[in-house]
Computed example of a mutant assay.
Amino acid sequence: MSRIDAKFAELRAAGRKAFVAYVMGGDPDYETSLQIVKGMPAAGVDVIELGVPFTDPMADGPTIQLAGQRALAGGQTLRKTLDMVRALREEDDTTPVVLMGYYNPIYSLGVDNFLAAATEAGVDGLIIVDLPPEEDDELCIPAQKAGLNFVRLATPTTDDKRLPKVLENTSGFVYYVSITGITGAAVAQATEVGPEVARIKAATDLPVIVGFGIKTPEAAEAIASVADGSVVGSAIVEKIASGQSVPDVLAFVESLAAGAHRA
């Protein structure tokens, strides 16, 4: 059982929904980013999504793109992002960490080298937004063999014909993208998300977590009420971008987590 499976089993047993938080590794700099990541479990974060900066982030809106640019300008790399996970594991061996990003940095490092380094560092799962199911042999299957969950995105355009293919090799949880388009661009609506989550849950036993367009504790609660949990990324990254202190960023994260946990 992976850390992700164990966390969702624990949440299910407690009758609680999950709160998943995203930050870009190395934004605004390595040390500040690491402090935020280390503070997340105490702030109520159930799963940490750690972004790997990339020069051409096609699925990301301006907020996440700028975070990636700041991280890259500060010298952040895939290996340094793994170092952050390793540092977290020195004091937290239970909170799941999912790396989120694009295939190019992994391809450049080499899949075997990456998987060995990721498992050694304590990574639990991967969300690679530009690898469709048709390319599962590239990374998804090797990652699963290495003991990492491969989390797949489903979207409003994932119809009933496409859904089985998307779910085929997915593990850990399904990440439902509540809106079409790029990150941070619109506001998620629980009335629209609920039926889509139900449709996906009818096809899989995996938890379905909803992200994109969730910016407030109230929205985190509303979305979690119709899913197995909610994800917030851009709204947290905006706090970091505005220069807020680590305690202030974590206080905002804690308010979002409390919202999701009320659901």
Rank of each mutant, 00 (worst) to 15 (best):
A67G: 15
L66C: 12
D92V: 05
A73R: 01
M58G: 13
I64L: 14
P57T: 12
D93R: 13
L78F: 10
D83L: 06
P53F: 04
Q65G: 10
A59R: 02
D83F: 09
D93T: 10
T77R: 01
A87C: 07
Q65Y: 12
Q65I: 11
L72P: 00
D83I: 08
D46K: 03
R86S: 15
D56I: 11
F54V: 09
A43E: 13
T95D: 12
R70G: 00
A87N: 12
G68P: 13
T94K: 09
G61A: 06
D56C: 14
A43S: 14
V47Q: 03
I48Y: 12
G68I: 08
R86G: 02
T77V: 00
D93N: 08
P53I: 04
M84Y: 09
G44A: 06
I64G: 12
P53W: 03
D60W: 11
L88A: 09
D46Y: 03
T63Y: 05
Q65S: 10
L88T: 08
I64S: 13
G74S: 00
I48M: 13
D93H: 10
F54Q: 11
A71P: 01
Q69T: 12
G68Q: 10
L50C: 11
L66D: 15
L88D: 02
L66T: 13
P53N: 06
E90R: 14
D92A: 07
T77G: 01
L66F: 14
L82K: 04
T63A: 11
E49R: 11
G68F: 10
L82W: 00
I48C: 13
E90V: 09
L82R: 04
Q69E: 15
E90Y: 08
G74H: 01
M58I: 15
